[in-house]
């Protein structure tokens, strides 16, 4: 099923996510306040772009945040910005599926309490490395 997805932040992570999700057939809109950031998307990027800061209600509105069944991914490199984008999406637009990238693992529990889904990058990398070392340990 094609989802409506807003990706906030068109850095390396955001651009990659937007590209992959767009190619999977989802309806993607990517938001960044730096117009040059969209250069990271491939010319065949199938989604929409909105220039502006994702913490701004009007910008998220332009990106389609008010539409039903929207998923939002806040993946800028700044934890505080991602948190604020997530809170605006949740409290001012009533979005329920919100992924928030965090680089500070200490923030994970609070994000969960706030009803946001933390994408805890250091923990994910650590888990991945654990799997890698486990499997080499077993000689796999």
């Amino acid at each position: 099923m094609a989802l409506r997805i807003i990706v906030v932040g068109c850095g390396r992570m955001g651009a990659h996510l937007a590209q992959v999700l767009g190619e999977q057939g989802h309806q993607v809109c990517v938001v960044d306040d730096d117009p040059n950031a969209f250069d990271r998307l491939r010319p065949d990027f199938p989604g929409r772009i909105v220039i502006g800061t994702g913490i701004d209600e009007d910008v998220l509105g332009d990106a389609g945040a008010a539409e039903a069944d929207t998923t939002l991914l806040a993946v800028t490199s700044d934890d505080a910005t991602n948190f604020m984008v997530g809170e605006v999406a949740r409290h001012l637009f009533g979005i329920r599926r919100i992924g928030v990238r965090i680089n500070e693992p200490e923030l994970e529990a609070m994000m969960v309490d706030a009803g946001l889904h933390p994408i805890n990058v250091p923990a994910l990398v650590a888990r991945h490395i654990n799997k890698l070392t486990d499997s080499t340990g077993k000689g796999a």
Partner: peptide, 16 residues
């Protein structure tokens, strides 16, 4: 000077 940081700090203080 950063509103997002100020909001995050207030929420950490209140919720945690």
């Amino acid at each position: 000077g950063d509103d997002a940081v100020n909001l995050l700090i207030s929420q950490i203080a209140a919720k945690m």
